[in-house]
Each structure stands twice: as structure tokens, then as C-alpha cells.
Amino acid sequence: MNTNTNEQDTIWELRLYIAGNTPKSVAALANLKRYCENNLKDNYVIEVIDLLIHPQLAEGDQILAVPTLVKKVPEPIRKIIGDLSNEEKVLVGLNIRPATS
């Protein structure tokens, strides 16, 4: 019997900061959605924040470049900058998958 259901019950809260509808922003969102569907099933929420519309929101998560992905929950908070095209790097960076040696 699996007593560790905590990880399965966790809803991953992900925040993607972009600046407009650029190719990098579109790619980052598409890559993120694909990784989440493949690895987190229905246990995630993606909030997209366009800094051209809400520039004041960059300060809260100390966003210096876009696109930037911020994992809010589960802790620790993690950030990944770029179009998220390297799946292994993204999954390891978010602690979804352990690093392979």
C-alpha cells in the first residue's frame, strides 16, 4: 500500500512570465503545457503573466528576463529562463524528475 499520496495530491502552481506574443513566449507556453500533461496530468495550474500588460508584476518574483517560468508550489520556489525547449532541464529544474547521472 502506498502511504505517500502527498506528492500525487499536490497541485503544481506554475507562473510563466512573457512579454507579448513572441515566438519564444509561444514556444515556452506550448512546451510547458506538453511537459505538464505528460508528467503532472491534471495536478497543475499555469498562470501566464504578460509583462507588457502588467509590468508591475515582475517585481514580486524578481523577473529579469522573459520568458521565465516560476514554480510557486510545491516549494522550494524554482525559476527557469528561456523557451523551455530542453525537456530534461525543465523537468529536473522543477524537481518533477530527478537528474540522471
Rank of each mutant, 00 (worst) to 15 (best):
N2H: 04
N2T: 03
T3H: 06
T3K: 12
T3R: 13
T3W: 08
T3Y: 07
T3L: 14
N4W: 00
T5M: 05
E7Y: 01
E7R: 09
E7M: 03
Q8S: 08
Q8E: 09
T10S: 08
I11R: 14
I11D: 06
I11K: 15
W12F: 10
W12D: 02
W12P: 06
W12A: 03
W12Q: 04
E13T: 08
L14S: 08
L14T: 05
R15D: 02
R15G: 01
L16Q: 13
I18A: 05
G20R: 12
G20Q: 13
N21Q: 15
N21P: 01
P23S: 03
K24M: 07
A27F: 01
A28Q: 14
A28W: 11
L29G: 01
A30Y: 07
L32D: 04
L32R: 08
L32A: 06
K33A: 04
R34H: 12
R34I: 03
Y35P: 01
C36N: 02
C36Q: 06
C36L: 06
E37I: 01
E37Q: 12
N38V: 00
N39R: 08
L40A: 10
K41R: 10
D42S: 14
D42Y: 13
N43M: 10
N43Y: 03
Y44N: 10
Y44Q: 08
Y44I: 04
V45R: 15
I46K: 14
I46H: 14
I46N: 12
I46P: 07
I46Y: 13
E47P: 00
E47I: 04
E47L: 10
E47A: 13
D50P: 08
L51Y: 07
P55I: 01
Q56F: 05
Q56A: 12
Q56K: 12
Q56E: 15
A58P: 01
A58K: 14
A58S: 13
E59G: 00
G60Y: 07
G60W: 00
D61M: 07
Q62P: 00
I63Y: 05
L64P: 00
A65Q: 13
P67H: 10
P67F: 07
V70S: 09
V70F: 13
V73M: 14
P74I: 04
E75K: 14
E75V: 04
P76W: 11
I77H: 11
I77V: 15
R78C: 04
R78N: 05
K79D: 11
K79Q: 15
K79M: 12
I80P: 10
I80C: 13
I80T: 09
I81N: 06
I81P: 00
G82S: 07
G82T: 02
G82Y: 11
D83T: 04
L84Q: 12
L84S: 10
L84M: 13
S85Q: 12
S85M: 05
E87K: 15
L91K: 10
L91T: 04
V92K: 09
V92Y: 07
V92N: 11
V92I: 14
V92A: 08
V92C: 07
G93V: 03
L94V: 02
N95G: 13
I96K: 05
I96F: 02
R97M: 13
R97P: 00
P98K: 10
T100W: 02
T100D: 04
S101K: 11
S101F: 01
S101W: 00
